[in-house]
Design a protein around this nucleic acid. Sequence first.
DNA 1: AAAAAGGTGTGATTAATATCACAAAATCCA
DNA 2: TGGATTTTGTGATATTAATCACACCTTTTT
Lengths: 226, 226
Amino acid sequence: MEYASCSTCLLKSKAVKSLGENELHILGQGCVQTVFKKGETIIKQGALSSNIIYLQTGLVKLMIDGSHRTQILRMKKAPCYLGLPTTMGDKINHYSAVALKKTTACFVDINVFKELLKISPEFSYEIIVELCKNELEQFNRYVRLVQNQIYGRLATNLLYFSNEIYLSDEFKLPLNRTELADLVCTSRETISRQLTELAEEKIIDIDGKHLRIVNKSLLEEISKKG
Amino acid sequence: MEYASCSTCLLKSKAVKSLGENELHILGQGCVQTVFKKGETIIKQGALSSNIIYLQTGLVKLMIDGSHRTQILRMKKAPCYLGLPTTMGDKINHYSAVALKKTTACFVDINVFKELLKISPEFSYEIIVELCKNELEQFNRYVRLVQNQIYGRLATNLLYFSNEIYLSDEFKLPLNRTELADLVCTSRETISRQLTELAEEKIIDIDGKHLRIVNKSLLEEISKKG
DNA sequence: AAAAAGGTGTGATTAATATCACAAAATCCA
DNA sequence: TGGATTTTGTGATATTAATCACACCTTTTT
């Protein structure tokens, strides 16, 4: 069947399960699945895009190469959609997406995607909810990033890893110190000093990239209050 | 007819025009129109919410009262939707919305709203596009806010007024110096000094709240490079 | 009109963070 | 294994912006 690759890639999405054979056929015709190794680029900033990307498995970092510094915007963990705002907006990718580990991505043509929205109210509702949750999550984090000083920004991002990405108080940082600085928008030296300080205060335990949050409520305090 | 208030409030929305009489009837049953004076609160941070708000006319500021400082997040100009991410997410308003001038708002019950999404693909498509544009616009601004220093942050926000709110290079600032500081996340004194500096560099002309952008390309340069 | 309250500008001082310079540690690779 | 390369930590210094203090101006209130 022509929609074989699609039933592989999208059936994990609850809403897609509700699609009938006809809809799956439409989807299948505009759908390509690709596997990316760690470090490979899935979306390239500045490139024209006509695809929504459904991430089946894996973890990516979204980043912007600005005129005076590189910024890491956030992680995205499968399963999720990528590129929705960009593709619905002005068609040019505003960020790059790079795999942090082996990642399987499914490229769905935007026109096929629009067709599906019209055919399946379930599907469009799922997309809206995902977008809303996403906007809210990102918004809250960015509000804190802007209003906080570095110590608070770092706390916010460590909690982000713990609560949104790894769902655990103990994990291996997916970024080195320079990349962590690019996420927090500060310098590598400052990150290094602040991590040491958080460890001295017995709020975290850190050994290289291995990190454990010891006093989560205090870390939340710092994230909130600056 | 029972949906009179609704045909008043929502018919300006292109997608709603495509709704039939039955759908309008559903909408009308969950729709209340209210007029707010300058300074009045439309949405209250922390309150439970079960409404999507359609702003018919006017201008509002969205703000967060944080634990250690107040932040003004952005303006929203009619016509637009308010509270979509919050209401679809965890039901509690993450921000307050305060009218900056006389504003007409239409409260649509979230369940009615969900019904409409299912009934009208046109309607849900319009919502998704609005959300996407919004997320993109906010995201780009916040990325710059985080990575820039104050001079660049101020430039970014003046451009935001010019390009997104007033669609003109000359306008009356809707905020006083303290509020401007809350938007840029800095202190009143710093805002005052930086505005003077921008004027000395002949990039803007400022007299009280009346502002004119003289050298827009240079302002964009500053917004991009920090 | 006088008094009170709020908004704005500016100098002096302090605190936070970036930058520079270099050493130590970890990782890669032939 | 040993040398090369990359990553990380840390002191010294420079820069940026917050804070404090106060004067001046505008608007509101009585």
